[in-house]
């Protein structure tokens, strides 16, 4: 009885088995198993059969060719580099735009705060695809936005540099811009959460002791919000690095990002082993290190 008292109703026999078992079995069957198939597939050999692979009967049962190509073929290396650069640029810009916004949200009058927070979240509820699409309309050659930018450009630069329109679509610039647009709420919300908890009496104390406002910011506010920066950075970087929709719609197909490469290897080249090898490489090279970094940063931050 004392054990039941300690742990509650949910430890009764039968109940706990169902409550743990059902989601467990579901995730193992429909997430873990498919993922293990990818890992296994990455060392299979491509064949012209359907499904297009085999674990060859020849001596090296495992075929490491996919991984060798990931690290030797310029196509894959460039794709990785493009992904890292684009995702890092999107993350930094999100931080630069999102940090003052989050701080502003903390500082505005509470009556405004909930409305403004709702306005930050609202685009998140509208379709992701349509938010990307909205920028396709703005960046096109004949759009009012492009014309506005072109006029401004022609006004600012010497006459020789004048252009008819600014080529924005199908560039990495467009990819980064749209990523910032779609992922900005993911940066603002964790930053807001960590800034909201800060003790403002510390700011006042520092001001009383003679700190300038910018010193207060760099010495007190910024260091305390590092967990929020890391959480937000991770929430932007990881999906941005593996992004498929944005580069497909507004990106430069001559320098694809890694998500596009995986999708093309799979759908167009029908090379399952190669697509799987690139997918595993994406996880090992980018996702796992980001997770580990944020995990240890969060830990060391918590220890302080």
């Amino acid at each position: 009885m004392s054990k039941a008292y300690k742990t509650g109703w949910f430890d009764r026999k039968g109940w706990s088995d169902i409550i743990i078992g059902l989601p467990y079995v579901w995730l193992v069957a429909l997430f873990l198993l498919p993922f293990l198939i990818v890992v296994a597939m990455s060392v299979a050999t491509k064949t012209p059969t359907a499904p297009p692979f085999s674990f060859g009967g020849d001596y090296p049962l495992l075929n490491w060719e996919g991984y060798e190509r990931v690290f030797s073929d310029g196509l894959y290396l460039r794709a990785f580099l493009t992904s890292v650069v684009n995702a890092a640029a999107a993350m930094l810009l999100c931080l630069i735009v999102g940090y003052p916004m989050a701080l502003g949200l903390v500082r505005v009058a509470p009556a405004w705060r909930n409305i403004l927070l709702m306005l930050v979240i609202l685009p998140f509820w509208t379709s992701f695809l349509l938010r990307v699409y909205a920028w396709m309309g703005l960046m096109g050659k004949n759009s009012w936005f492009n014309k506005l930018l072109t006029d401004w450009w022609n006004f600012v630069v010497p006459v020789d540099w004048a252009v008819n329109s600014i080529p924005m679509m199908h560039t990495n610039f467009a990819v980064v811009l749209v990523m910032v647009y779609t992922y900005l709420p993911f940066m603002i919300l964790p930053l807001y959460a960590s800034l909201e908890r800060l003790d403002t009496t510390l700011d006042e104390a520092a001001l009383d002791l003679g700190s300038r406002p910018h010193q207060v910011f760099f010495d007190i506010t910024l260091p305390q919000s590092v967990p929020g920066i890391i959480a937000g950075g991770m929430l932007v970087f990881i999906p941005a690095a593996g992004e498929l929709v944005i580069p497909t719609l507004v990106g430069n197909s001559a320098s694809p990002m890694i998500g596009r490469v995986i999708s093309d290897e799979f759908n167009q080249a029908r090379d399952w082993p190669m697509a799987s090898a690139v997918a595993v490489a994406l996880l090992v090279l980018m996702v796992v290190p980001t997770m580990l970094y944020s995990h240890f940063q969060a830990k060391s931050g918590g220890a302080k």
């Binding site: 989601p23 467990y24 995730l27 193992v28 429909l30 997430f31 873990l32 198993l33 498919p34 993922f35 198939i37 990818v38 597939m41 499904p51 990881i238 999906p239 690095a241 593996g242 992004e243 498929l244 998500g259 995986i262 999708s263 799979f266 399952w272 697509a275 799987s276 997918a279 994406l282 996880l283 996702v287 997770m291």
Partner: peptide, 20 residues
């Protein structure tokens, strides 16, 4: 298993489900 799908890039979840 509960955390991994949150951070798995969608393309990878996509190809793994399709192959499955």
């Amino acid at each position: 298993l509960v955390t991994a799908p949150l951070i798995m890039p969608e393309v990878i979840t996509g190809i793994s489900s399709l192959m499955f």
